[in-house]
Amino acid sequence: MVVDDAVEKLEQELRRGVVVLGVLSQLGTPRYGYELRQCLVDGGMPIEEGTLYPLLRRLEAQGLLTSEWRTTSGPPRRYYALGPNGRRVLDRLTGSWREMTKVLDQLLEGTSDDG
């Protein structure tokens, strides 16, 4: 029970660490909030609604995303997309992520060798 609780909490922290990269990676084309969340869930990255939507506004405030209101069919929706800075940040974060996973794989290999 203690282990399960700890794993759940720490997994959440792990996911929180990568959610920004996951979000940026899916905003190459404009999407609205719910559509983005479904996209992430279908891709295997479940994310809480209460976390995603405020995150989008924060990333916009930081200048990484742009947004516009669109009324297509149904009520008006706010569409988010990567801005120029967002693309640069995405490229750099992707490089950092690849580096980190390489390092972590090596560390974990060392751990499994030690038994």
Partner: peptide, 16 residues
């Protein structure tokens, strides 16, 4: 702004 967006998002989530 948040009211408008949050209302639309929640409606979409509920419909889903």
């Amino acid at each position: 702004d948040v009211a408008l967006e949050l209302r639309a998002l929640l409606a979409d989530e509920v419909d889903g």
